[in-house]
Every structure is written in C-alpha cells, then in structure tokens.
Design a protein around this nucleic acid. Structure first.
Lengths: 193, 193
DNA sequence: CGACAAACTTAATGTAGATTAAGGGAGGAA
DNA sequence: TTCCTCCCTTAATCTACATTAAGTTTGTCG
C-alpha cells in the first residue's frame, strides 16, 4: 500500500518525525469499496474520517420520498465522513457510497483519540482540515440560498472542473439541488454554455 | 469585564492552568456593537472569531438583487465569523451585524496564532469547535436540500426555541430560505401549528 | 453478439414559493 | 398628539422548478 498521498497531504500542514509518521501509518486501515457499495455499514458509528486514494465517494441524504440529495463528492485526496455521527456517536443521516470502484484509508474513532494523545500536532492538522471544511460549507450555503440553479451549476463547474467529466449528470443535478430533467433542460436551452 | 462565560465554555473542552487562563484572557478584545452596526468594517480580514456575550449577531450574504440571506444567528455563548475570509485572508462574502445591542469578545488573527504556540491545547479546543460547526452545517444543508419550507421552520423551532421569541419573523424567513410573505402565509394557513 | 439497465432528452402539466401591491398595527421621536 | 418606520398580514399574479410520462441513446455484461 502506498501511503504517500496522505502523508504528503498531512506534511503540508504539520511536520512529523519519521517515528511519528510510521505511528500514524500504523493506525490506518485500507478499504477497497466497489461501485455502489457503502463506506459505513448499518449503524457504524465508531469509524472516523476516510481519506480517498482512488475513485470517487459521495455523501447523500434521503428525503421522505426516497430521493437522494448529494451533500459532498470526494475524489482522490479528499476526506469524507458523517461528522454528526462521528461527534455525537449516534447514527447519522448521511449515506456514503462509491460512485466508482474506490480505495480509502480510514481510522477508528478510538485510534484518532490515541493519535491526539501520542502526537498532539494532529490536533492542529485536523483543526485546519475542519476549518477549511467550514469555509466550504459556508460557501455552499450561500450558494444555495442566494443563487438560482443555473449559477449554482456554473459555480460547480468552476470549483470542480475535473468532476464534471467524471460524474453522471444526475449526480451533479442532485448536488446543485435540482432534478436531472431540469438540469438537462437548462443545459440544452437558449444559452447552452 | 466578566470573562467567565467564555472561560467556562473553554474549560468544558480543555483544562487550563491559572496562568494559561489569564494569558488567554489577556489576548481578548471587548467590543460593544449597537443594533445594526457591523462586526467587521469594510475589508477587515485580520480579525478572528468572535464570541457573543450579550445580544444577538447575524451573518448574512447578499444576492444580486440586494436580498439578504441569513447564514447564521449567534446568541450569547456562540461563536460567529467569516471562516472563508479568516482562512484565506481575503475579503469574504459574509456580512455580520447585530440584531440587538450586543457585546462580543474577539481575537486578532495574529493573537490566535500566538495562542496556538504558547498553549497548544487551544488547537484542540478550536478543533472541537470547528468539528461541531461542520456537523451543524451538514445538518443545515441536508435540511435545505431535502425538506420543504414548513419542515425547515419546524426544525428551526426545535433547534432554537429561545430564538423564535426574540427574532423578527423576517429574519427567520431569511434563515429557512423563504420570503417573509410566504412564512406569514404558512403560519396562518390551515394547520397553523 | 444481444439484451437489459442506466443515463440523457423532450414535452405537457402541476405546484411551492416569489413578486407585487396594499393596508394595518405597534413602537419611538419630536 | 402626530408622524414615521418597522413589522406583519392578505391576496392576486407569476415563475422557477417539480412531476409525470414518453422515447432515445449509451453502456455493460453474460
């Protein structure tokens, strides 16, 4: 297994000795997830954040009519997880599955705690990670509340150009908060961008 | 000035010696904000998070038609800030003002960095704070994407019962993402809850 | 290769919520 | 008191987007 994408990512924010690095790596679990399989099994609450090394994961919620609403995509190099479930240690409201055959690295919640105690610098790392996520969520909320669908689509294209090619249109529709039919109509209408 | 609400809040998550506590307090700035005044002045990017001790603050974005969209309310005991602007050190997209005469404690960005160096336990404190905020934003997004307006209102009432009484209806309408007219109609229609 | 499912399109109809416009009540300042 | 501003309400009209229902194209896998 090649841990260097994750290590590089960590080392961008904090410095670690060789021993600290190998301790961190020793806590990591590898998991291969086939397309359509889930990251967490039913009621899995002791699993911590997951770092994507291959493929694409997706977090979504379900409404009462059974429709999916995409909360986040995670291509390689991104983290994904149900933060509510993780913090409160309660079953969450998020489903996380793979849109393609994928591979992730993940930590047990208890190992994350150990890591904080053994190498407190990781408190800093995950603080920075969390702050960036907040900024992203704030931006997403602004977008949802303040812009019409066509501009949310344009913003998505700007922010995630690599994803546009990779993702079925209906997933993008779900992310920006419209039906696949409406997105299709938007894209094939007067100003077809 | 009475710092104990903030100190109590901090001490719920980390333990601090007397000296650490007074060092922390020495970095705090107090500011009184009158109703309708702003937390940040034009282009203020070196100011860090603000902790509300009295009153209510509000963060909102503006759309191209000049309409306000509330991203967050902050009653006493809550933190508020423009995380994007804080992290990227760029002008943000959020306006933060007071809905009532208020009082806050705030830190310079540079003092937050000093605090992390002098008392690394604060990395842990702000990590926990940030993680909780993520959980809240995830919940808000789920709510916005997956539920109709009337249920978003019900959820708001459940989550912030104290705010319902305190806030003008139009602010709540803006938070749940509808016009004041429509909220009024909803509340005075068939099942008036 | 054939076939079955999944992805995209098109179009008719339906609806949640926006917009516009008007009027009424409560509080504050002079 | 009177005026003014802010807040809430009601109602008519409008629109962005959903729903339903075909049909078409693309992919995938036995």
């Amino acid at each position: 297994m090649n841990f260097s994408p994750l290590l590089d990512h960590v080392l961008k924010h904090i410095t670690l000795t060789e021993e600290e690095q190998s301790y961190f790596v020793s806590l990591l679990n590898v998991k291969k997830i086939k397309k359509k399989q889930y990251l967490y099994e039913e009621g899995d609450i002791n699993k911590g954040p997951a770092f994507v090394t291959q493929g694409i994961l997706r977090a979504y919620s379900l409404d009462k009519n059974g429709f999916e609403h995409v909360i986040q995509f995670a291509p390689p190099g991104w983290w994904i997880g149900d933060m509510y479930s993780f913090i409160k240690q309660q079953p969450g409201r998020l489903y996380i599955d793979a849109l393609e055959d994928s591979e992730i690295l993940w930590l047990w919640k208890s190992d994350v705690e150990k890591l904080y105690n053994q190498v407190p610098k990781f408190e800093r790392f995950f603080r920075i990670l969390a702050e960036n996520a907040i900024a992203a969520y704030q931006g997403r909320l602004i977008s949802n509340l303040s812009f019409p669908a066509i501009e949310r689509y344009a913003q998505f294209c700007n922010q995630y150009p690599a994803l546009i090619e990779h993702l079925p249109q209906k997933q993008i529709a779900s992310y920006i908060g419209v039906t696949p039919e409406f997105l299709s109509k938007m894209l094939n209408s007067p100003s077809p961008k």
